[in-house]
């Protein structure tokens, strides 16, 4: 239905603009703050327009040699840790949930529905709820302060399993039978047919899971005590706990913005596939 009512259009646009403003304003402030000298930020009033220290602040936040006092953490290595963790979680989740959904949808075995419901129920148990037992298990396995400790406990995903299941259920039965006729066994069918057909779903889930992995806060905070394994999201909090000294806002803000960059890039680069994967099934 196409309507043309000028007043309605105006009001909707105003509402949208207001929404954008509410979301974008804090990010703007963060950006502005990242371009000022520390004195300007600690004086009590927040400037609204960018200053002249953009390059200097960012270089200092990254720990590049500038002759000035820098942060108490190593941002580049933390960005690397975050990337390893986010990619590990994403790829692991996709692999495991896809295989789990494949088993549940295409094979008849005992306790099939039971296993589906077990997986489904874990949807209701986020990491925070089961954090003590999970910590215990990871500690007993000696995985504190390691990448596997960061990645493995978060790798199982009921959401992705469920989404893949829903997608696999829409794959026409004849396609499987045609593949059987063509001499494709279960593994061949998975690789040659199901995987390419799931391309857009994979992309959509990749985006969601990457952001989920990147934004993990509580879990890395709990299991890492070695600076080598700190992730960027948890360390922003550490930058603020400096005791009696003044918070280096001119360095915290550049770090925050740079921590936001990878998820934003992932979303922008995969946007087209992402939307396709959520709205349309190619058949």
């Amino acid at each position: 239905m196409i309507e043309n009512r000028p007043l309605l259009n105006l009001i909707s646009h105003l509402t949208l603009c207001l929404g954008v403003l509410v979301v974008a304003f804090p990010i703007w402030i963060a950006f502005v703050a990242s371009t000022h000298a520390p004195e300007a930020l600690n004086s009590g009033t927040v400037p609204l327009w960018p200053g002249d220290r953009f390059l200097l602040n960012y270089a200092m936040a990254l720990g590049l040699e500038t002759g000035q006092k820098t942060l108490n953490v190593n941002l580049i290595s933390m960005l690397g840790n975050s990337l390893v963790m986010a990619l590990g979680i994403t790829i692991g989740k996709l692999l495991i949930s896809m295989l789990a959904a494949y088993a549940i949808v295409f094979f008849r075995f005992r306790f099939r529905m039971l296993s589906f419901w077990l997986i489904f129920i874990t949807l209701m148990l986020p990491v925070e709820v089961r954090i003590m037992p999970t910590f215990e298990v990871v500690a007993d396995l000696g995985m504190l302060n390691s990448y596997s400790g960061l990645i493995l406990p978060l790798i199982a995903s009921a959401t992705a399993t469920f989404l893949f299941r829903q997608f696999f259920l829409t794959v026409p039965h004849e396609l499987i039978e045609a593949a059987r006729m063509d001499g494709a066994g279960p593994i061949r069918f998975f690789i040659d047919i199901l995987l390419p057909l799931s391309r857009t779903n994979l992309a959509a889930l990749f985006v969601i899971m990457f952001i989920y992995g990147w934004n993990q806060y509580l879990w890395p905070l709990l299991i890492t005590t070695d600076e080598h394994y700190y992730t960027v999201v948890m360390s922003i909090q550490r930058m603020l706990s400096v005791g009696d000294a003044e918070v280096a806002w001119h360095l915290v803000m550049p770090s925050t913005l740079m921590a936001m960059l990878p998820p934003v890039l992932v979303v922008i680069l995969m946007q087209r596939l992402f939307i396709k994967g959520l709205v349309e099934t190619e058949k």
Partner: peptide, 16 residues
């Protein structure tokens, strides 16, 4: 099916 040396044409074609 693949060992029977037969080929089938399906109602909805089932093309990949």
């Amino acid at each position: 099916p693949a060992q029977r040396d037969i080929a089938m044409v399906f109602q909805n074609y089932a093309l990949y």
